[in-house]
Design a protein around this nucleic acid. Structure first.
Lengths: 144, 144
DNA sequence: AGTTAGTTTAGAGTTATTCTAATTTATATC
DNA sequence: GATATAAATTAGAATAACTCTAAACTAACT
């Protein structure tokens, strides 16, 4: 059975497994959110954009549940938070190490293609601390 | 006259000049804030920490004025904003290109010593965009 | 000293997010 | 399949970090 056929026949199985593996009950709300997030290409979202999407898909989910799910997905490694804006949180479905462009005018977040940037001679963490992540953000503006 | 003597004799002159050059009237409030920020080593602050400091120095300044000043100082190049936390804005008195450690447990922000990190093969900005900054944040946690 | 444009401020407003306590639901067990 | 129960969801209130507004104040020019 091809991936496409499987997708048509049992549209939720992949996502159900993913939630179960993360120790999260596959509720109606989490399924709808996970499907939007993980069923397709990698994405960058905020709580508000994801909430708008899930509502547009005619699944009634409260904003509180969207926030809960984003944090649970992040805690269990299904998502990664990307800090680019001091006024709202962005999440990335690509949890592997990579870096970002952030358009300060539009709020658009996009990946820097692998190989187009590299961080060398990483410093050691200060004593008593452990490294938890390295993020490079290249800020851009729409040309005046 | 040595820098120290100058500091003792005319404690505000340097800071007054700095504000005037930035096109900002040297008011009582801006002078007190600028003195805390620029009269000494480089610093990392938030609106709340700076407000607490200026109040502790017995200068009455409203929080709104602290926010106004931080933005004006940033716009005129006296400060740089560092985005490390999606819930509050940090500012750095060192406006030259350098990178940061951020302790996710304590909220402490510190410089990565020059030469201990380097970003190579910077990508070009997407078409229609201009580069506005490159930030590397190395996140650390207090050891469990 | 008087004028005026720039600055400060209290307090109200806004936005993103978190909390709370009541209701609902998934799942383990009978 | 019905039932118990722990987990999840939700509305709405609460919070935190700003931002705005319009009135009072002040720096600096005349």
């Amino acid at each position: 059975m091809s991936i496409q056929e499987q997708h048509v026949d049992r549209p939720y199985t992949g996502v159900i497994e993913r939630l179960k593996n993360a120790g999260l009950r596959p509720t109606r709300q989490r399924l709808a959110l996970a499907k939007l997030l993980f069923d397709g290409d990698d994405r960058h979202i905020t709580a508000e954009t994801l909430h708008a999407e899930v509502m547009a898909a005619n699944v009634r989910v409260s904003l509180a549940t969207v926030y809960n799910a984003l944090h649970q997905f992040t805690r269990s490694g299904l998502l990664r938070e990307v800090v680019v804006d001091s006024s709202r949180a962005y999440f990335d479905t690509n949890t592997t190490g990579h870096h970002h462009f952030f358009d300060e005018d539009t709020g658009d977040l996009s990946d820097i293609p692998d190989g187009e940037i590299s961080v060398s001679s990483l410093p050691g963490a200060p004593i008593g601390k452990v490294l938890s992540g390295v993020e490079v953000v290249v800020r851009v503006r729409s040309q005046q």
